[in-house]
Structures are given as structure tokens and as C-alpha cells.
Amino acid sequence: MALSTVPYALVVDDDPLIMMDTTSILEDAGFRFHEAMDGDDAKLVLAEHWENIILLFSDVDMPGKTNGFALARHVAEHWPAIEIVIASGHVLPRAGEMPEKATFISKPFNRRMIHEHLRKTLPDNKLPEPLKKAV
């Protein structure tokens, strides 16, 4: 199966309005996306679509057994090629809570903040064309 030239992100957030805003921002950055409302659902999406996902963008506080930090650790362990961005407006990560490769962004965020964060943190070979052009 050939990989799409448009990269996929998995967006995980239990707030539908934040989910819509985040997916719109990532779509403007050049991503297609999969969605999950919590960490447990995200694991199911990953099991099925991990081959085309290059970015996990997840909230921290969500219902279910798997919060954003646990999801980030799971992704880093099982799919180390997937880049990880964790976002929260309520919780800051403590030492060792996130995998070393994961990055954190505070909520509320906006389009410019996320695009700049992705430009700084994603390797060049994973940057979608719109982010490369907008420098």
C-alpha cells in the first residue's frame, strides 16, 4: 500500500469544539486527520491506521482509562516514528510524564501558535508543504 503524499494526524480531544478547531488548524497546515474522543478510542484508531499517521495531537484530560500522557507513552513505545504533541489548559507535564520525543503546547492555542510549534518540532521530512512554504 502506497502512503499518501498528504500526511495524517490523529487528533484526540473529548471537547467537540476544540476538536473542530484543532482539525481545522491542522488541515490548514497540510494534514488530513483521524479523530478520537479519548485515549482508548485513539488506541483503536492507531491499531488500524498507524501506517499513515505521522502526528499525534492529543489533549491530556479525557474520559476513559488512557489520558494524553499515557497515550503519548503508548505511541512512543509502539510507533516511535509518530511525532507527538500534547496540549492542555489545565495540566503541565511533570518530569518523566511524557516521552522524551513528545512536545507540549498550552491551551488556549491558535493557528499561528500550532503552525510555529510544528515548524520547530517536526523533522523537515515530516513537514507538510503548506508549513514549509509559510516560513
Rank of each mutant, 00 (worst) to 15 (best):
K101I: 01
L44W: 00
L127P: 09
L46R: 07
S24Q: 12
G89P: 00
L122E: 03
K107Q: 03
K107L: 01
F31R: 04
Y8A: 10
P108C: 09
D40Q: 10
K120Q: 10
N110I: 12
E48A: 04
I82P: 07
A2G: 07
P130Q: 04
D124C: 01
D13R: 00
H90C: 06
E100L: 11
I82Y: 02
K43I: 14
E35F: 01
N110Y: 12
L127I: 11
A72C: 06
V6A: 02
A2T: 13
E116L: 12
I18S: 11
F31G: 00
G39D: 04
L26G: 07
R32W: 04
T23W: 07
K120C: 03
E51S: 14
P123Y: 11
G89F: 13
M37Q: 10
P16F: 03
H90Y: 08
L17H: 10
D13S: 05
E35L: 10
P7T: 05
A102N: 14
S24K: 13
K120D: 14
T23D: 13
L55T: 15
F104C: 00
M98N: 01
A47C: 05
K120W: 00
D21G: 13
D61V: 11
D40L: 06
E35H: 01
E51R: 15
L127Y: 02
D61H: 05
L92Y: 01
E27T: 14
I84D: 02
A29I: 10
V135G: 12
G64H: 08
R73H: 15
P123N: 01
S106C: 11
